[in-house]
């Protein structure tokens, strides 16, 4: 697992709960140095441990935190580039949903060390889609709940009205059911191809 994943968890805790909360987390993670360096972790076990400690400090279930991280990645101003990269997936929420299958490969192009879970729309009945999130290896982090938060935030971004349901696990993979009630329910946030950062 890439250090950027651990770094995102750190940023989430700091941006949402404040620096002091992160200091508490870091202290539990590495009492000797009082500071956990997200770059030290290339191993999925570091991410598992980090998530367990964050859940303990925040006194919330890990799944709920994962979901908040998914939302945070799309909505927080610090992550504007992430939201833009996701919007490259398509012009409508439905296009975006189907583009998720390409996401791990795209992410891998940008960051060769970043192995996202495999994403597949495995069923599509009318306006009901089932997304399967499958970890790449037995020790990888699946983050199925994070995709719940991410999908909900992206639906808002596209101005679509959706309901989401975590359908539990099927073997290693997690299933998320997405019902698309309306493509243009609300106003979509602006997205122009050429408005990217660093230019």
């Amino acid at each position: 697992m890439h250090w950027l994943v651990n770094r995102s968890v750190e940023r989430f805790v700091r941006d949402t709960y404040g620096r002091e909360t992160w200091v508490e987390v870091a202290r539990l993670l590495d009492p000797d140095i009082d500071a956990f360096d997200a770059m030290q972790g290339f191993d999925a076990s570091v991410t598992h441990h980090l998530m367990a400690v964050v859940a303990k400090i925040l006194e919330r279930p890990a799944r709920a935190i994962e979901e908040d991280i998914g939302t945070y990645l799309v909505t927080h101003p610090h992550n504007a580039p992430v939201r833009r990269l996701l919007r490259f997936g398509g012009d409508s929420f439905e296009d975006f949903l189907h583009s998720l299958e390409d996401l791990p490969d795209r992410a891998h192009l940008a960051l060769p060390g970043l192995d996202l879970p495999r994403l597949e729309v495995i069923a599509c009945r009318g306006s009901v889609f089932t997304l399967a999130v499958t970890p790449t290896g037995p020790d990888s982090v699946c983050f199925g709940s994070a995709f719940m938060g991410l999908l909900r935030a992206m639906a808002d971004d596209y101005g679509a009205l959706v309901t989401l349901e975590h359908k539990g696990q099927d073997g290693a993979r997690e299933l998320i059911e997405v019902e698309l009630l309306a493509q243009d329910h609300g106003e979509a946030r602006a997205f122009a191809l050429g408005a990217g950062a660093g230019q």
Binding site: P81, R84, L85, F88, R106, A107, A110, G196, A197
Partner: peptide, 12 residues
């Protein structure tokens, strides 16, 4: 365009 933005984000 996607790669340019992904590269910029990664570099930052």
């Amino acid at each position: 365009l996607y790669l340019i933005e992904a590269k910029t984000m990664t570099m930052e």
